[in-house]
C-alpha cells in the first residue's frame, strides 16, 4: 500500500515543445541512372563483343583456309591412288557420259552382275 499515492494529480504525456520530428514513411531509392548512360553502356558492351567475335571469326577462317591448303597438297596422291585402284578393279566404262567416283565396296560388289568383271 505504501507505493501508491492516490493523492497525486494525473499528468498527461504531451509532445515535446516544437512537436515530434517528421516520420520518414516514404520509399527511399538512390537517384536513378540516366537512360543515356544505360544505352551507352549497352552499346559499348555489344560493340566490344562484336569486335572480339569478328576478329576471332577472321582468325578461324584463316586457319580453315590454311588447313584446306595443306589438305589439298596430298590430294593428287589420293586421286592417283583412287584412279589406279579403280582401273585395276572390275568396273563398267561409264566415261562416254560422265565420270562417277567409284563407290562400290566389297559387300556391294557381290550384288553386281558378273559380266562386268569380264571387260
Amino acid at each position: 500500500m505504501s507505493g501508491l499515492n492516490y493523492k497525486q494529480r494525473w499528468v498527461q504525456d504531451l509532445p515535446p515543445p516544437g512537436g515530434y520530428p517528421k516520420l520518414e514513411y516514404g520509399r527511399k531509392i538512390p537517384p536513378p541512372i540516366s537512360g543515356y548512360w544505360v544505352f551507352g553502356i549497352t552499346f559499348a558492351i555489344m560493340g566490344v563483343g562484336t569486335v572480339i567475335f569478328f576478329n576471332d571469326k577472321i582468325e578461324r577462317m584463316n586457319q580453315e583456309k590454311e588447313e584446306k591448303k595443306r589438305l589439298s597438297m596430298i590430294l593428287p596422291i589420293l586421286q592417283a591412288e583412287n584412279d589406279i585402284n579403280f582401273l585395276a578393279s572390275s568396273h563398267q566404262n561409264v566415261y562416254t557420259t560422265r565420270w562417277m567416283p567409284p563407290q562400290i565396296q566389297k559387300r556391294q560388289l557381290t550384288l553386281l552382275p558378273k559380266e562386268w568383271g569380264k571387260n
Binding site: P76, I77, Q79, A80, E81, N82, D83, I84, F86, L87, Y95, W99
Partner: peptide, 19 residues
C-alpha cells in the same frame, strides 16, 4: 583431259610411284 582415270594413267602411276 577431264576426270577419266584412264586418260592420265601414266601420270597417276608416276605420282604413286614417287610418293
Amino acid at each position: 583431259k577431264g576426270d577419266d582415270p584412264e586418260a592420265c594413267l601414266q601420270f597417276s602411276i608416276a605420282v604413286m610411284g614417287c610418293s
